[in-house]
């Protein structure tokens, strides 16, 4: 992270974390946040539990949010962390997620909690465990940062 966080950015992240404690997203647990707000470290780790009645029931996934100093004007980088990456037609085996609100449709009114809700609903509505058709091709060529990818969003509603 090149530049330190502007105060407004750090304050907003703090507000979001406070709100996450007060009104958590069902099935989502905050595992760890930035150690201090002045810190340039901006990783926020969440645990997502596969909901009952879904094909991910009982599974646990680690999801990492990484904010840069342009947050919330720029979207966070959101990646599932190994070892357990959900088998899902919109989630690549390197943890990258094809989700429009993380790219073109990002808005600064969206929050960590809104993104978590989206991802939970994406998992819950999935009926078949499989990787995207171009998974092998993608993971060989993709950058570490999913935001370097020009995504085309899936046309199906899994």
């Amino acid at each position: 992270m090149a530049a330190p966080f502007p105060v407004s950015c750090a304050r907003r992240i703090q507000k979001e974390l406070t709100a996450l404690h007060a009104e958590p997203v069902p099935g989502v647990t905050l595992k760890s946040g930035p150690d201090t707000l002045a810190d340039k470290s901006t990783d926020i780790n969440m645990i997502i539990k596969g909901a009952e009645g879904t094909i991910y029931n009982g599974e646990e996934f680690n999801l990492r949010f990484r904010m840069n100093e342009r947050y919330p004007f720029e979207s966070p980088e959101v990646v599932f962390q190994p070892p357990n990456i959900p088998l899902h037609p919109h989630i690549y085996s390197n943890g990258h997620i094809c989700l429009s609100i993380l790219g073109n449709d990002w808005s600064p009114a969206l929050t960590i909690s809104a993104v978590c809700l989206s991802i939970v609903s994406m998992l819950s509505s999935c009926k078949e465990k499989k990787r995207p058709p171009d998974d092998q091709f993608y993971i060989r060529t993709a950058s570490m940062n999913p935001k370097a990818t020009r995504w085309m969003y899936h046309d199906d509603n899994v």
Binding site: E74, I101, G103, L110, V115, L117, M122, S125, Y153, D155
Partner: peptide
């Protein structure tokens, strides 16, 4: 901004209000 986005006026799904989150189009 460091990134330039070319975004057409596509449909918007706000996950705060809807469960769905996928755009049908690239």
């Amino acid at each position: 901004a460091h990134r330039t986005e070319h975004t057409g006026p596509g449909p918007y799904h706000n996950p705060l209000f809807e469960g769905a989150n996928f755009l049908p189009f690239g």
